[in-house]
């Protein structure tokens, strides 16, 4: 497929949809195995949405489908629709690279490139063709400030990203993700490799980032979902071993008075 055939996803200024992201009957398959079964959910702009559920319930798979990361897994395919700015992201003419630029991802384990702090953050913008040093400097500073890391690294931007602590590395990865100005940030258990203090820093950071970004986070830590998110989706596997959405509601509702008894059992620690 040539670039000419690819369609551009409308930007938010052109058409502001009611929701930042909408999944309609989204099923995800690995070969013949249906890992996620017919999930429909609407992600609100500038809110933090947490996906929770027991191991193997498909929450990470669902999260990865939100920016077509699953495309990289051989044999993976999807059914249903995923709408972003009114465009189905799984339309064959949509460029997955553009999808991943506009919907960024932060992973479980901090994974800075073995490059300087500066180059880690400037990596994406450079790929986008930005060459001018002053412009890159601005982007690096803005991104590091937004990631609440600037004050800690401003004097050592040329040092390796790997020289930072785990919590700092994760904030560097967040800075790298936001340097290309995505609209949505996906976070796959971003604190599971961090100590409690570093975890709290990231959680505070998420609350700050929420002003400019829509965030979807997968977390194993229920207290984290309760602390940090506005909406919570509870998933679990059904009788066919596929992950499904059980309940999606305001976080305060899920943790004080969930509608579904399976959610109740999970959040009160009766299983999972």
């Amino acid at each position: 497929m040539t670039d000419a055939q690819l369609i551009a996803i409308p930007n938010a200024q052109q058409v502001r949809q009611e929701y930042a992201l909408e999944a309609h009957n989204l099923s995800i398959f690995y070969g013949n195995f249906r890992a996620v079964d017919s999930v429909s959910m609407k992600i609100q702009y500038n809110k933090i949405t947490a996906l929770i559920g027991p191991s193997g319930c498909g929450k990470s798979t669902l999260l990865r489908s939100f920016n077509r990361m699953n495309d990289l897994v051989p044999g993976a395919r999807i059914e249903g629709e995923l709408l972003f700015q009114g465009q189905n992201l799984y339309d064959p003419f949509v460029d997955p690279v553009e999808v991943r630029r506009r919907i960024g991802m932060v992973f479980q384990k901090p994974n800075p490139f073995p490059k300087s702090i500066y180059d880690n953050v400037a990596y994406g913008p450079r790929i986008q063709g930005i060459r001018k040093k002053s412009q890159l400097d601005d982007i690096v500073e803005r991104s590091l400030r937004q990631a609440a890391l600037w004050d800690e690294v401003k004097d050592k931007l040329r040092q390796s990203g790997l020289s930072l602590s785990g919590g700092q590395q994760q904030r560097l990865c967040i800075a790298r993700a936001i340097a290309v100005e995505p609209e949505i940030l996906l976070m796959d258990e971003p604190c599971s490799a961090l100590d409690p203090i570093a975890t709290l820093r990231i959680e505070e950071l998420m609350r700050e980032l929420q002003e400019n970004y829509t965030i979807v986070i997968v977390t194993h830590n229920m207290q984290q979902a309760a602390r940090v998110s506005d909406y919570t989706a509870f998933m679990m596997i059904n009788e066919n071993r596929s992950g499904g959405l059980v309940e999606f509601d305001l976080t305060e509702k899920i943790f004080t008075n969930p509608s579904d008894s399976r959610t109740e059992d999970y959040v009160t620690g009766r299983f999972g």
Partner: peptide, 13 residues
Amino acid sequence: MSTTPPRSRSQLD
């Protein structure tokens, strides 16, 4: 690790 440890339901009960 900040993952929620499995909670002891019997103790809570």
